[in-house]
Design a protein around this nucleic acid. Structure first.
Length: 438
RNA sequence: CGGGCAGUAGCGCAGCCUGGUAGCGCACCAGUCUGGGGGACUGGGGGUCGUGGGUUCGAAUCCCGCCUGCCCGACCA
């Protein structure tokens, strides 16, 4: 994308309403604009980040056999009356009426809907297990929205639901999901540590929150360093084999990890000092098993091998997609701006033409840009060098390809890596090779 | 939901106390110079002062209501 053609409004000054780093940077870098309290419009660069995150989530959910669906944002109150949650949910649920006076709601989550859809179609244990997910906007009417997209009222969430014939099957589904989540967060370039969470009335140990480590996180976290040193992507796990899943699962649960709410000093003391990690975290994912809560309350049954009907066991699994944009920035920025992990960056590189109109500079920039116009942001404005440097740092592209008149005469460009600040003087070919472009 | 603060140009703010023709910086437009970390000069454009009412000869300014946004706390993916 050429910057002169792009809708890419950056701000020099910080809007007064933004307090925390990610919110300020998202506004300044032109990723989002607030339209109401807790509600945001996504501008082109922000949308690209959102889509990149979605895509990684999709690939890793598909990899464990989950299938994507898309359910509506508006739901019928009838559905929620069947589960008993229409009255139980409280004022966080946004309730509306259509022209006929029928009660609707903007979905805060989709257990009821997916259970209904599943139950009306699946009638036999032979069709289990099944896992379905969708990536859709949710609305929860928070009392006090804040921190930009990290605690908005409208937010984009990936939510998945598993259906199994037995508790054992549900446990396997849960473990597959945990693996998928660990891989998702690793690919997103953030460290997210799974921590045991409250399971509510269901009991057991089958609920985990995933927290991205960032100094501004809302929860204190204590965990064993082993949990952030694992490479989940290269770890071989057979998702169809309960043994393999159990082995994987124990590598997570054998190590201490807890938020301040669940922190246990006695257990913490058993962790060797050199492996103790303390900090703060932002919750970006939550998985839990809740048995037959919805299948029972909504009367969903399938036939078992003996012909007798039973309520399938369910689990639900959420990733805060829009919240992650903020969380990633909280975890990865400096005074100058955002430092995007390559996997989610809106563009892989920015091309900074320091002398727009100079024949040599223009020619080199055009050549570089032509290799991958979709994934490069070409700053072809007639701005001064300083403006381009600052905007590129602010927007946080992993690489900056700096083309100035001095180097251009010799066919050289300067490559700057945003994360490290390292600079390399290279030929065009070498620079392209280094950033992995064609 | 308790407590606090704020709405004046796209953004950041002053003006309000003490009523009298709405200002500053940045951004924007035109031009000249400049050209490797938000440059300089000259000349421009842009505002229902959140909103409704009241007081007054006269309200951004004083009074009352409402709306919106933000912060702290409680709550929360």
């Amino acid at each position: 994308m050429r910057l002169t053609k792009a809708f890419q409004p950056t701000l020099k000054e910080v809007p007064a309403e933004a307090q925390i780093a990610s919110h300020r940077l998202m506004l300044r870098a032109g990723l989002v604009r607030q339209t109401s309290s807790g509600i945001y419009a996504w501008l082109p660069a922000g949308l690209r980040v959102l889509r990149n995150i979605e895509q990684i989530v999709r690939e890793e959910q598909d990899a464990i056999g989950a299938q994507e669906v898309l359910m509506p944002t508006l739901q019928s109150a009838e559905l929620w009356r069947r589960s008993g949650r229409y009255d139980a949910y409280g004022p966080e649920m946004l309730r509306i009426q259509d022209r006929h006076g029928r009660d609707l709601l903007y979905g805060p989550t989709n257990e009821e809907m997916i259970t209904d859809i599943f139950g009306s179609s699946v009638k036999s244990y032979k069709e289990l297990p099944k896992a379905l997910y969708h990536i859709q906007w949710k609305f929860r009417d928070e009392v006090r929205p804040r921190f930009g997209v990290m605690r908005g009222r409208e937010f984009l969430m990936k939510d998945a639901y598993s259906f199994d014939a037995s508790y054992e099957g549900a446990v396997a589904s849960y473990r597959r999901m945990m693996l998928s989540y660990l891989r998702i967060f690793q690919r997103l370039g953030v460290r997210a540590v799974p921590m045991v969470a409250d399971t509510g009335p269901i009991g057991g140990d089958l609920s985990h929150e995933f927290l991205v480590l960032a100094p501004t996180g809302e929860s204190g976290v204590f965990f064993d360093a082993a949990l952030e040193e694992q490479d989940w992507l290269s770890r071989p796990v057979d998702c169809d084999d309960a043994e393999s899943l159990a082995t994987f699962f124990s590598t997570v649960t054998d190590h201490y990890a807890a938020t301040d709410e669940k922190h246990d000093e006695a257990e913490w003391a058993k962790v060797p000092d050199e492996r103790k990690r303390e900090g703060r975290g932002i919750e970006v994912g939550h998985i839990f098993y809740f048995g037959t809560k919805y299948t029972a309350s909504m009367g969903i049954e399938v036939s078992g091998p003996d012909g007798a009907p039973f309520h399938p066991h369910m689990g639900s699994y959420g990733v805060g997609v829009s919240r992650l944009v903020g969380a990633i920035i909280e975890a990865s920025h400096d005074d100058a701006g955002i430092i995007w992990p390559a996997s989610v960056a809106p563009y892989r590189a920015a091309i900074l033409n320091l002398r727009q109109g100079d024949e040599a500079c223009d020619a080199i920039c055009d050549r570089i840009y032509g290799t991958d116009p979709e994934n490069m942001l070409y700053d072809d404005r007639s701005e001064r060098a300083g403006v381009k440097f600052n905007d590129a740092d602010l927007m946080g592209h992993p690489w900056q390809i700096i083309v100035g008149p001095r180097g251009a005469k010799e066919g050289k460009v300067e490559l700057k890596q945003r994360a490290t600040g390292e600079r390399f003087e290279l030929s065009v070919e070498d620079a392209l090779a280094k950033i992995g472009a064609a």
